[in-house]
Design a protein around this nucleic acid. Structure first.
Lengths: 205, 205
DNA sequence: CTCAAAAAAGAACGATCGTGCTATTTTGCA
DNA sequence: TGCAAAATAGCACGATCGTTCTTTTTTGAG
């Protein structure tokens, strides 16, 4: 890889970490240059504008999501194993050290939902692809007869994504250490073996 | 009410609308002054600092949530009617014209989750209170035997809040016009009359 | 109506940011 | 090793923002 590409990768890796903490729209070229050991104009030359830099950060974060969540899931057998692997990796990514300030893509969805432009377009495309991937794995599980009878796949994908967001919210804002467990419990209630809705874990009186 | 308080209320009402679109951290005193028909320094004198202004915006948005969502629900009978009224108003608020850019409190949760200070503290307190309110209404419904047997109230509150966030995300970013319907469907599946998990709406083959 | 107090306006400051231009250093091939 | 090209640094400009200080306008009680 050329020197330029290597430097660009290093910049973006640091930028994604910073975006996780302060948000993509609050990235500044100056502080990013300092963290990367470059001068302002040296870093600027890699992207040409701040918006291009922000767009590159979005794409880098999306690529990282695919590497850390989607690809590992596809090493599992089709059906519930693959679906469960995707959901587990998706939830657990919120607790690893790689994103100290939370998922920059979820945050960016709130930052840019009212700001038309290339960044919003990239976010929309990425979120649509995420949802379609989730629905595809759900459909595979349903075709294999591994989901509760009569499950509504789009609704289920909608609810599972809600669990992700709730886990993120409770972890990042409320410091709730049980949020991952709640999300995984919710997944099992919606998709798992508990066909009947929530059998009490303690014997009835 | 004194002139000062009246002007302050008008400023905050406009500020909440702006925060809905651009976020609380991107509010600027200058543009807010223009929208309120005041000068920069005239507006500034009402708050004393930008952080105090942002804190006042958070409190105004929280008060608005109580007025529009919580209080109307408490006019309904305890149990499922009250719970359903709360959830419906909560979802539908995302689609009314009062918050053109989405819920500023949900967005603020992402903006300030890594920024310690009075604003984050106020957001945390407000979200904890929201969750406790939701859990209290769920508990009432469970005590009345109106929830599916063995329902886990904290988990249910966690999942219902996820439905709110998913609806917000799909509406604001993906322009999904069915997102409210999905959230309400999800509510009925989790809390509603469908005790068995999702009876198919179309007759089985 | 008067006039002191409250409210708002106006102007200016230092700081920060994105960006453009030029000089300097570093790279990698001949 | 020499040298053109690529990569980076240095510097400055204009714009924007929060904040302070002073002046002007507006309010409302006596």
């Amino acid at each position: 890889m050329s020197k330029k590409a290597l430097t660009r990768e290093a910049i973006l890796q640091q930028a994604v970490r910073s975006a996780s903490q302060i948000g993509i729209s609050r990235l500044t070229i100056g502080s990013l240059a300092g963290q990367s050991g470059l001068s302002k104009s040296g870093l600027f030359a890699h992207f040409g504008s701040k918006e291009a830099l922000q767009l590159a950060v979005v794409q880098a974060a999306q690529a990282q999501f695919v590497e850390e969540v989607v690809k590992p899931a596809f090493t599992q057998p089709r059906g519930m194993p693959r679906l469960r692997a995707l959901f587990h990796a998706w939830v657990m990514r919120l607790y690893g050290g790689s994103m100290p300030g939370g998922c920059p893509l979820l945050a960016a969805a709130y930052e840019f939902d009212d700001q038309p432009g290339a960044i919003r377009d990239a976010l929309v495309a990425g979120q649509r692809w995420q949802r379609e991937t989730l629905q595809r794995l759900l459909q595979d599980a349903q075709d294999a007869g591994e989901l509760p009878a009569g499950s509504d796949v789009p609704l289920l994908a909608f609810m599972l994504f809600g669990l992700i967001q709730s886990a993120h919210h409770d972890h990042q804002l409320l410091d709730n250490h049980h949020s991952a467990q709640l999300a995984l419990q919710g997944f099992e209630q919606l998709c798992g073996t508990a066909q009947a809705p929530a059998i009490p874990t303690t014997p009835a009186t």
